[in-house]
Design a protein around this nucleic acid. Structure first.
Lengths: 133, 133
DNA sequence: GCTGATTTGACAACGATTCTCAATCGCCAT
DNA sequence: ATGGCGATTGAGAATCGTTGTCAAATCAGC
C-alpha cells in the first residue's frame, strides 16, 4: 500500500464552497432538497445532483451528520467533531447535541459481549421541546 | 369526542393473517418487498400495497419493529413486547435483541433536563458478528 | 494556451412507498 | 341466510427522494 488512495483529489469548487457555507449557516437538520432551494434563493445556483454529491462527501468526511427521518428522508446538519447524539423536537425540529459517555461504554460492552467487532451505533432522542409543549 | 376512535375496527382478513404468519416465520429484518415475494412464493398472493399497509398497522400496533437501513429502506421484524434495541450484523444481517435499562433512564433524564416531554428514542448498534468477523 | 482528469448540470432512470378507486369482503342486524 | 354498508383489497398510476448518465465546463499543472 503505497498510499491507498481511497480519497481522490478534492477540488474546492464554487459549488462545494456554497454548500459548505450553507451548512455552516444554520443549526438544524435540513434535507438535500431544502439546501438546494436555499442556495437557489441566495442566487448561488447549484445543481441538485451536485448538492446530493457534496452532502455525501461531507457526511463521509464526518463534517456533517446525516440521519433519516421517520419516513426515510436523509437530513443533514453540520456537527462538532466529537461523537454525540441528538435530542430532536418532534414538532419544531429544534435540536440539541447531547453526549453520554455511559451510553458509548454500554454499547461497546454489549457488542463485545456478543462477539461483535467494528462497532458503531445510532441514537436519537425525540420529544416535544419546552416551547412546543 | 364521544370516543376518540383513533383505532378503527380491524378485520382479520386472509391477507392480514398471511402477513402476520409470515412475520412470525423468521427472525431477522425483512423489507416489505421481500415479504411480499415470500408470500407469493408460498402461494399466498397478497398485493404489494396491502403488504405495506399491513406492516404499517403492525408497526403502529407495536407488534413489529420497523427501522431504516442506511439507505432509507424500511425493514420489519416481529419483536417481543418489551422495549428493546438491536445489535445488527453489518454483513449478514443477524440481529440480537438487547435491553439496557440504563440507557432508558439516561435518555429520559437528558430529555427532561432540556425540558422535553413525551420522549421516545431510537438506538441501533451495528457491528460485525463473530461468524462474519 | 494545451491537456487530461475532475466536476457539473439537466434530465432520465430508479426504487421504495403511497394513492386511487372500483370491485370484494366481513360483520352484524334483520 | 340475507342484505346493507363500511372496511379492505389489488392493479396500476402517481409521488418523491435519490442516483445514474454523459456531454459540456472547469481546474491544475505544464
Amino acid at each position: 500500500m503505497t498510499s491507498t488512495d481511497a480519497t481522490p483529489p478534492l477540488r474546492p469548487t464554487r459549488q462545494r464552497i456554497a454548500v459548505a457555507e450553507a451548512m455552516a449557516s444554520f443549526d438544524d437538520f435540513r434535507s438535500a432538497q431544502e439546501i438546494h432551494e436555499l442556495l437557489g434563493r441566495r442566487g448561488e445556483h447549484v445543481g441538485l445532483a451536485t448538492v446530493y454529491r457534496t452532502l455525501q462527501r461531507l457526511a463521509d468526511a464526518g463534517e456533517v451528520d446525516m440521519l433519516r427521518t421517520e419516513d426515510g428522508e436523509a437530513i443533514y446538519r453540520r456537527c462538532s467533531d466529537t461523537h454525540h447524539h441528538h435530542l430532536v423536537c418532534r414538532s419544531c425540529g429544534r435540536t440539541v447535541e447531547v453526549e453520554g459517555p455511559a451510553v458509548e461504554r454500554w454499547t461497546r460492552a454489549i457488542a463485545s459481549e456478543h462477539g461483535f467487532t467494528d462497532v458503531s451505533h445510532t441514537l436519537e432522542i425525540f420529544g416535544t421541546c419546552p416551547s412546543c409543549g
